[in-house]
Design a protein around this nucleic acid. Structure first.
Lengths: 202, 202, 202, 202
DNA sequence: AATGAATGAGTATTCATTCAT
DNA sequence: CATGAATGAATACTCATTCAT
């Protein structure tokens, strides 16, 4: 009450609010989350929230961007840096990355995108440009590298990098809908990657 | 104006209303759909809607059931009837069935389930019992038949029939989020099935 | 269902509906009673009810009149017929009559009048003319007879026949509000009458 | 128009709203009063009303409590303080108190209790504990004091303190139903008290 | 005469947003 | 900057009443 936590500076405020909002959206979804709850969670008044975010929608978009951008940067950085063979990269860093997704904030973002996409076309645009097309592009590049150095044969998989994502999406959706009815997510993804590699190996 | 204000059509009403509701939910989701809109779409007054469905939630559940039940019945009937080898069945009727899903009402149901699951646990239960577990059970049976008559080797796929569904889910989610940014859904599913068969063939 | 009960004749219908309405009003009050419930209770369709009573209000008024009229007639007849001395009459038939009121339909009518009076001035007029003023007039007459033949002294009671009714009203209101928290109604009324007689005896 | 649309007055609001609500309930009863009307009367928006009272029912209960509590406190205080003989007390402060009731807010509360009792059992409980049983208890005590110091004889009145209230209730009900058809309330109550005293004097 | 399907005005309640302080 | 009191548009649901059959 009396003491501000962490000697708060005004620069942190938007970030703090966005985090609170993310947590709230993760729990209840966008529509069901009340602006007041977000403010309370952030330890801030409603008025102040509106000082930084013009509307609830603005807040939503900011939150999505805030979560998504660093994550995609991480992915592309990983891909760029790698010195491994394509297969070794897929079995190593990529597999690790994919297996992490279902339990990560990314899964929350996907849930939010699925629920809200129809009402937020500009958010979809943003997501497309900054996440989907970049991610798929990176995957495509990886596959092409594999073909170029004789590891992989040409195949339809080259044009459908979504195939890599499919079991991740399956796991995420399963988690959203069936929460408690457990599915061995790791095994699903591993088997899937194994299968792809068997299929495209030269 | 042109039409009579009063139109007795007791038998058809529930069905008509449910169809209008399905269309509305498909467009805007459950929460964003106003009961009044559903009524208008059905060419009916709000009051009449409430005569047949006690609450908006009841209506929702009825709609889901109405879409889901016949579809699942179709699936299990298809599986039961078949005289084909497991692989022939997968490449034939099953592939056809899977390829149809992304453009079908099923995809709407899945979107609704994803958005509303957290608020409708009983609906999830219903969906689990009548769709998910039955569908997965049928797939598992099919794979076991393949193993039994020497077509398939024992493998992880047997325990993860979700792998069959993954590209369908991917396609559906893609369609929800990216609507217009086309994805060759058929090819995705075909390639995926091809890949699975190559993987599990004895 | 198939057989009409009691070989119903159309002449009885309004009466039957009114009785059903009275029962419903007694249970839930006027506002809380749905026209549909009345119709169901009467074993009749809503449409037919509206054939006999133009509005719910009409029905209400008819019901009040139907209950009230015969009861008042009984009272005035009792008073007119009597050959007894005033005190004997009071201790006998009148006391009996008063003690019966709290458990009788009259008490329902009073509850309804209290709740609905502000919205039904014409009903109040009817009630005043046919019940209150006639009843009070009869009581006044009785008291005057007692004075005339030397039983009672002149006193304020003559001008306030409401004093006779007071404990009855008290009992009725108590019953409405406290239903289960019992009050010995009979004793209350007896004591009260005893007290009055002691007070006015010459 | 003239007044500012915004008027911060946190402390007073609940009180102001409760008063407006009391006035509205007094005029039209609970059910017939629209929340919007209460808000308008209080010069406040619907939303603000709901900030202070969670539901219309809550508001109702708060109003009843607000009116009832001070009045009962006044009564019990009066009784406790008195140094008078029982009869002097009855003819003095008690008579004054009783004569005031029919024109006071208490009468509104009683009307509301009569109309709403069946739907608000918890309100009845509250009323019983805080008004009825306390009031009757005080009266009983007073009568016992009179008996103890030889002023009064033992009589049924001791167990039926409701007898004191009867003409007050009669007056209140008369006022509710017949509003304009005047009744000399004061005289009714005075005569009644006179009568009781004559009856129980030792 | 009799039915009950159909209507739609009416009402409690919620919540994003504003603005006096 | 910061607050949270205040606003009011939006929405699910009810029920007296009508009218095609």
């Amino acid at each position: 009450m009396g003491r501000p936590r962490y000697q708060r500076r005004k620069e942190d405020r938007p970030q703090e609010i966005a985090e609170a909002a993310f947590a709230a959206f993760a729990e209840k979804g966008f529509t069901a989350t009340k602006v007041e709850d977000v403010a309370r969670r952030a330890g801030v008044s409603k008025g102040l929230l509106y000082l930084y975010f013009k509307t609830k929608e603005e807040l939503f978009k900011a939150v999505i961007r805030g979560v998504v951008t660093p994550r995609v940067d991480e992915l592309t950085r990983t891909l760029d840096d790698s010195e491994l063979s394509a297969e070794a990269f897929i079995r190593g860093p990529l597999l690790t990355f994919l297996k992490r997704l279902p339990g990560s904030p990314a899964s929350v973002v996907i849930r939010l995108m699925i629920s809200e996409a129809p009402k937020h076309p500009d958010l979809v645009d943003y997501y497309w440009e900054n996440v989907a097309s970049r991610g798929l592009g990176a995957l495509r590049q990886l596959l092409e590298r594999g073909v170029a150095n004789g590891e992989f044969r040409e195949s339809a998989v080259n044009e459908l990098p979504q195939l890599f994502i499919a079991p991740v999406m399956m796991s995420i959706v399963w988690g959203i809908v069936f929460a408690d009815r457990s599915l061995d997510t790791d095994k699903l993804i591993e088997t899937h990657v194994d299968m792809i590699l068997a299929y495209i190996r030269a």
